[in-house]
Design a protein around this nucleic acid. Structure first.
Lengths: 342, 342
DNA sequence: CTGTTAGCGCCTTCAG
DNA sequence: CTGAAGGCGCTAACAG
């Protein structure tokens, strides 16, 4: 029952102006008719008293919490932290608070969070999922109640809702094509869990590029695992110890690509000349690491901004028409895919 | 006026059990006397109906919002994103929501955020500041009203409040001492804005180590600027183009140290043998970059957990007794401070 | 254009 | 141990 002394309410403002709280309330929003004179008085007084609205109260009164929940795997990487920065910027400018829930890339944790989520405390949700399509129902329940969700980056397939995605198919295609055109002939793909859309799309792009240039798909060269650097290391270990060693690796993201490079170095396999490596994200580390990493850029900041804008747009209406927005990135060509020593 | 159909309230629960809402409310918290039988009934019904409390309502009723505000410079680096992960974990386990405000490391933006902050919407604040001591007043106002703030990492000096810090002095001391013991004789320090405590403490450690080993402080070798990699590059440029080039650089953080290394490489100065480099943080990139970076570890995750725990402890009481907690990290010795070619 | 009134969902005295 | 009633700060009809 802590009470801030700082508890200037609308009533204080009204009293000191000898008007009703309703008038103050109206003056503060510009939805109703208030005389310009009183509005001016109110605004000045509000400023003078340093009045701040109590979101719990407005939330109760108008069923609008000013809160946007964000459910995402982790924040400790370039991609997601940049997305959040984009989200935060838009949210802040629109007087929304963003509330973070981290699933730690664990489906179990994500389900638990969804289960516990006090939906009444949010106006909408921004989510990047770790769940496969079999878990679609959990999100459907929420959406069917008219609660707006915008998925970003990693979405659940088969749900009628809004999404902001990268062009994963095309990214996978371009990455693989680039390797082929640079003369690599046996290209492996180390990727994420098979049930995720993002995994599937990038894989499809990879396969499409192989097909286009008349390479056959070798399933031993496609490894599904997790998204972390450690998995990148393990997957690469498996590839180079296998009987049929590829000469290039397309990793589903930069973290795994970095893991690859670390393992390759450990085995004295020269990145680029002996083994091409391509990542996905364009994490700044791609430029710092040596050799520098060729990678498909992802417009992380834009993804954040766009998804938040879309959600806020939905929030303004009673019912929302799902939209799907696909943002494009460009292949950044660097040293890790140079066959000749530069 | 969007209303979730999912609007199971305490009243629904009460009605379907033929008891009063007051009883349900009491059963849900264990503060009042309720018969074990009714409590059990209530809990079961709550589960069955999937009732979730409305934080706006509880917030209004008990002046407790379940929200913790976090004000910090950026999230797009290892340190802060890891701190947030720590904070989130504790907050989640205690049913607190965390709400992010990013200052972008800009004092102007931070002041604006503080100014606009709807304090009534938070139970407490976790902050890592970009402001110098002259801005202490802004935080004092808040704290004097009994509003609990815990500073982490970067605190404002001269305020009576809680802090969770790293041992910056000692870190600076150990880093510099390590360089000296490895035979470097002219050690520069590239650091942050001079008005920040974190800058001052690390600088003091640096100076103390120099003094202890009878080196004189050369002010040309101390450069104050920003915390980013770009500043690291610029500062290093300035150092190596100066008339009196040092043979080692202690950077206030890893990002600047990386910037240093990039500039050194560009100028064909060998990191380690020709120029020692030490960072501060132990960003994972320190192990990935080549040569690997010697750095003072910061217990980022612990800092996050500890500050959140401390804040929640404060929240439980009516008045809080400020506490200062200092966490320790260890120097991680790697290649960037090896004089001889390894 | 402005005041009065009721109520959002929940908590907390106060009776019983 | 439980129910009734008032109120947290604000908004939204409804009068006037």
């Amino acid at each position: 029952m802590r009470k801030q002394l700082n508890t200037i309410t609308i009533r204080e403002v009204a009293k000191s102006l000898n008007i009703s709280v309703a008038t103050v309330s109206r003056a503060l929003r510009d939805t109703y008719d208030v005389s310009p004179a009183t509005r001016k008085k109110v605004l000045e007084k509000v400023h003078e008293l340093n009045y701040k609205p109590n979101y719990s109260a407005t939330g109760l009164a108008q069923g609008k919490t000013h809160n946007i929940g964000i459910v995402l795997p982790i924040v400790t990487n370039y991609y997601f932290s940049t997305v959040i920065t984009g989200i935060q910027e838009i949210a802040y400018n629109h007087d929304y608070n963003i509330i973070l829930y981290l699933t730690n890339d664990s489906p179990v944790k994500e389900l638990q969070i969804l289960q516990d989520l006090p939906l009444g405390s949010f106006d909408g949700l921004l989510v990047s999922t770790s769940l496969g399509p079999d878990a679609a129902g959990h999100y459907c329940n929420i959406i069917d109640h008219g609660f707006p969700i915008v998925f970003f980056d990693r979405s659940v397939a088969g749900i009628k809702t809004s999404r902001v995605l990268q062009d994963d198919f095309n990214g996978g295609f371009e990455a693989t094509k680039h390797l082929i055109l640079n003369g690599y002939t046996s290209i492996a793909h180390i990727t994420g869990p098979p049930e995720l859309t993002i995994t599937q799309k990038r894989l499809q792009g990879y396969k499409a590029a192989l097909a286009k240039y008349n390479f056959t798909v070798n399933n031993d060269w496609i490894i599904f695992s997790g998204f972390s650097q450690e998995w990148g290391e393990k997957d690469t270990e498996q590839l180079i110890l296998g009987k049929n060693r590829p000469d290039a690796i397309f990793a589903v993201n930069d973290r795994k690509a970095i893991g690859s490079m670390i393992t390759l170095k450990k085995h004295n396999i020269r990145v680029g000349s002996q083994m091409g490596v391509v990542g996905f994200t364009n994490d700044p580390i791609a430029m710092i690491i040596s050799p520098s990493l060729t990678t498909v850029e992802e417009p992380a900041f834009e993804v954040g901004k766009t998804s938040c804008e879309l959600l806020i747009k939905h929030l303004a209406k009673k019912y929302f028409e799902p939209e799907e927005i696909i943002l494009h990135g460009k292949l950044q060509i660097r040293e890790s895919t140079k066959r000749e020593k530069g």
